[in-house]
């Protein structure tokens, strides 16, 4: 391709399956009551969709915490997946009939670039693979039509097997490899880091899972951390955010420990631009922010 590729926009796009459930798409089997517990997040996603609707991109990349791999980082490597994804954790909420296309060429390019960084990489070529609910949910909420190919990257267990610091280094390297692969293949890419912020769940559920009177943050500690982290994003202090990430992970049980956010920041070269917070809300006690780093707009301004 003649024109080098680029990352158009990077988003923090958390994946509580509750949000798909609440939206009642025909692909999802269970029906929700519409009682409204997660309205701030659904509205946040609506704002994100509005913000990106005129942007030009031809592929969506997602890093998902719910495809957990111990042997390195894996990428979907089959051009088309179709099937039923039942969430083993919230099967009452998420039984989604998916049908999606994969940009295998770009996935392979990321695989190759990351191997050059010394990372253990693997292409997933089993057509019977059940695409995880993190990948499906983030994609659905950002672009419900599933009319663009995706790339899905698994969450390697480096943070858990070695240390948070080792995990962070690996995710920055994976991000850098992702960026090079996007550029080399000439893609215009939308990146999604599919994770929550603070991540302590309640271990029970009301009779109507969407009951708003039940929904709130797990505790004040989680809330304070979430707002601190969002403040760092909003004020463009992404370096500092990375410095504090191991503390955030340890003290707020952040789902960032699955690496998605650090991968995204790495792929965007740790931009010191101000991020736009489209929404924040809790799902069964966890803190979730929908955040956009509009790289294309920043380029125009520069």
């Amino acid at each position: 391709m003649s024109e080098p590729g680029r990352i158009v926009t990077g988003c923090l796009a958390p994946h509580p399956p509750h949000l798909v459930y609440a939206a009642n798409p025909e692909q999802n089997e269970p029906r929700s009551s519409g009682a409204g517990a997660w309205a701030p997040l659904l509205e946040g996603y609506a704002r994100l969709r509005e913000s990106i609707k005129d942007k030009e991109y031809d592929v969506i990349l997602v890093h998902t915490p719910h495809w957990k791999t111990c042997v390195g980082h894996h990428l979907l490597g089959v051009p088309h997946f179709e099937g039923l994804s039942v969430d083993p954790i919230f099967p009452n909420l998420f039984r989604f009939h998916f049908d999606l296309q994969v940009d295998v060429e770009l996935a392979q390019a990321i695989h190759d670039e990351a191997e050059k960084e010394g990372l253990v990489m693997n292409m997933m070529r089993n057509p019977e693979f059940r695409v995880d609910y993190g990948t499906i949910t983030s994609n659905y909420l950002v672009r419900p039509a599933f009319d663009l190919p995706i790339v899905a990257i698994s969450s390697a267990r480096t943070y858990f097997d070695y240390s948070d610091e080792a995990g962070e280094r690996e995710m920055l390297a994976l991000g850098a490899a992702t960026k090079r692969a996007v550029e080399k293949t000439g893609r215009k890419a939308l990146l999604l880091a599919s994770c929550s912020l603070s991540h302590r769940h309640f271990t029970d559920e009301p009779a109507d899972p969407e009951d708003p009177s039940f929904e709130h943050i797990y505790n004040e500690n989680q809330s304070k951390w979430d707002h601190h982290v969002m403040n760092l994003m909003q004020t463009g202090q992404t370096r500092r955010l990375l410095e504090e990430m191991p503390d955030f992970i340890a003290q707020a049980n952040a789902e960032c420990r699955d690496g998605s956010l650090t991968w995204l920041l790495g792929a965007m070269d740790v931009p010191n631009m101000e991020a736009k917070i489209h929404g924040y809300g809790t799902v069964i006690g966890t803190g979730n922010a929908i955040v956009e780093w509009d790289l294309a707009a920043a380029e125009v301004q520069a």
Binding site: W67, K68, T69, C70, V71, H74, P88, I89, F90, M124, R125, N126, E128, F129, R130, S154, H201, T203, D204, E205, I284
Partner: peptide, 26 residues
């Protein structure tokens, strides 16, 4: 089989499906 909402007991009398390991899919 990891759960978050308490403890889940499988109760489908005849589960008939398949599973692919997250690591060892090959």
């Amino acid at each position: 089989w990891v759960s978050i909402i308490g403890h889940q007991m499988q109760a489908d009398p005849e589960p008939d499906f398949w599973v692919v390991d997250e690591d060892f899919h090959q």
